[in-house]
Design a protein around this nucleic acid. Structure first.
Length: 277
DNA sequence: AGGGCACCTCGGGCGC
DNA sequence: TGCGCCCGAGGTGCCC
């Protein structure tokens, strides 16, 4: 589910909902989620008494800054946060609860149990796995046409897998990769080192534009995504190719194709995204 | 370096 | 129409 636009939307809603609140205690009911420290009891003990300062984002990771600790949280496919009163019934698939001193709770739910949480000293988190190998932020000033082609233009693999790899550019997942490649008119299976300069230029613009528009729309709710306030995103209504297999392409009327590329469902229009430059 | 699979559960689609 | 099974799902990390 959550790619950059969804994580950014969650970040914004979480700031509103939990900044300034102090943790009384933490309950972990699925130890697997807690990756660091190694024992969930230590995780809970470290967080007791901490106050949430703010919430930041690095790629698809949330960083909850709490006094002298940083909680690094990844939602993977279906993780979600919500804030509740402590007497509200706890929904299925709730794995971690941060109980605040004011009687409210931040609850982490994750149907597929893929999400992760790591606890670090501030600063250490950016130098350690899982954050230390992340690539460029596509909505930052460092993401330029030049930086994109510098990183990828000599690569010999297909362009879609490269864009999904968080070591180069962060934040793109299966939905927005397909959308950005469509907007750029580039076939997902083009070999990266065959892209022309104007194609790198189009791709750069397409990635930035697609992600910005999706953030503005509050992300895409395809299956389960909601933000920290339980609200759905709206960008799913603007998707041009993702989820539109065998429907007409909005630009040319041709057929939107779907095939598996590297194990991922991949959507594109052969007329708008030819295999040859 | 690049490809394949594993980690989980749920729901949709298909066949009987 | 109803049930049960199989497959796929938005992400990453580890294996070879």
């Amino acid at each position: 589910m959550p790619e950059l636009p969804e994580v950014e939307t969650v970040r914004r809603t979480l700031i509103e909902l939990v900044a300034g609140k102090t943790i009384d205690h933490v309950t972990v009911t699925l130890p697997r989620i807690i990756q660091r420290p190694t024992e969930p009891e230590w995780f809970a003990a470290d967080l007791a008494g901490k106050t949430v300062q703010t919430v930041e984002r690095r790629g698809k990771f949330l960083r909850l800054l709490m006094d002298d600790l940083v909680l690094v949280s990844h939602l993977r496919m279906e993780g979600r946060y919500g804030v509740y009163q402590q007497d509200e019934p706890v929904q299925k698939h709730t794995h971690v609860i941060f109980h605040f001193t004011d009687g409210t709770e931040l609850r982490y739910q994750d149907v597929r149990q893929f999400g992760t949480m790591h606890l670090f000293k501030p600063g250490d988190d950016l130098q350690s796995p899982p954050l230390n190998k992340l690539g460029i932020e596509p909505l930052s000033e460092t993401f330029t046409e030049q930086s994109l082609s510098n990183i990828l233009s000599k690569r010999t693999s297909k362009v879609k897998p490269l864009l999904l790899n968080q070591a180069y550019v962060v934040g793109l997942g299966n939905i927005y990769v397909d959308e950005a490649l469509f907007a750029a008119g580039i076939h997902p299976e083009r070999t990266a080192n065959t892209l022309l300069p104007e194609e790198w230029s189009r791709l750069h613009k397409a990635i930035a534009d697609t992600l910005r528009s999706a953030v503005e729309a509050g992300g895409s709710s395809i299956k389960s995504y909601v933000n920290g306030q339980g609200e759905m995103g709206m960008f799913q209504h603007q998707l041009a190719v993702y989820g539109r297999a065998n429907k007409p392409c909005a630009r040319c009327g041709g057929n939107v194709e779907k095939k598996v590329v590297l194990g991922r469902g991949t959507h594109y229009c052969l007329q708008c995204q030819p295999l040859e430059a």
